[in-house]
């Protein structure tokens, strides 16, 4: 990703946080009850520091996406505790914050499909994330352009998603995830729909974002070829976090 411009000044100057970006302990998610009970996630504890990029590996059905949904406050855990930055967001079986507001201010999401609004251009998709967070329209547009430039898709800013390639769409999605300077970016198989070259480019982009913008990035992936991009990896199986390992430096 050496061909992409350097980080926007406002982002590059972000100070490191003394708290981990996310600290989750004893997360369990159970669906159904009695004979139909399924434990999708079982006693999982995760810590990701700001500026760190971590891969979450595991076979299909291991509970990776569910763990990501728990950390993203998309579904509530059955038990456990989640702190994001210096705020405890889930404890004692309930959310401790207004999750809509918290999500838009502190979290960024990227999925297998870019999930861009089909009726908005690339720059408008990024702008929208900021306007939702009460950033004035003009400022939001300027910063959106800045982000697209940072991610190497500025020349495609005024194109609708249908006119962008899969890789370009994912870059726009990453720009959208970065729009509100989140402390935690959660990505669920963001390269699954891309070929290996573009997939690696996107993974390297996440690494760049994590290191240059001081955001924690947790990426669910099946793609073992790009593991060298990550600072470390976690593995899940049958809902349990089995072990982690340090990746080789890039």
């Amino acid at each position: 990703m050496t061909d992409t411009p350097s980080a926007p000044a406002a982002l590059a100057n972000a100070a490191p946080d003394e708290f981990p970006a996310v600290a989750a302990t004893g997360l369990t998610k159970t669906y159904g009850d009695g004979h139909t009970e399924v434990r999708a996630v079982c006693e999982a504890s995760v810590n990701v520091a700001r500026g760190e990029i971590v891969a979450l590996l595991g076979p299909s059905g291991a509970g990776k996406s569910t763990l990501l949904a728990l950390l993203g406050l998309i579904v509530p855990p059955s038990t456990g505790r989640i702190a994001i930055g210096d705020q405890v967001v889930f404890a004692d079986g309930q959310f401790q914050v207004r999750i809509q507001r918290f999500r838009r201010e502190h979290l960024g999401f990227v999925f297998q499909n870019a999930n861009l609004m089909p009726f908005l251009t690339a720059v408008e998709n990024v702008q929208l994330a900021m306007e939702i967070n009460d950033v004035p329209s003009r400022a939001a547009r300027a910063r959106a352009m800045e982000l697209l430039d940072y991610l190497g898709v500025a020349e495609r800013a005024d194109h609708l998603p249908t006119k962008l390639s899969g890789g370009e769409q994912q870059r726009v999605a990453v720009a959208r995830a970065l729009a509100n300077e989140p402390s935690l970016i959660l990505a669920d198989e963001p390269t699954a729909a891309l070929d290996s070259v573009r997939g690696r480019q996107v993974m390297e982009l996440f690494r760049k974002v994590a290191h240059e913008q001081n955001a924690a990035v947790l990426v669910v992936t099946h793609d073992h070829r790009a593991l060298d991009v990550f600072d470390r990896s976690l593995e899940m199986e049958d809902g349990k976090l089995r072990r982690g390992r340090r990746a080789l430096p890039v």
Partner: peptide, 10 residues
């Protein structure tokens, strides 16, 4: 799209 808006905290 509405689900995505909600996810973004709209």
């Amino acid at each position: 799209d509405i689900a995505m808006l909600k996810l973004m905290g709209a």
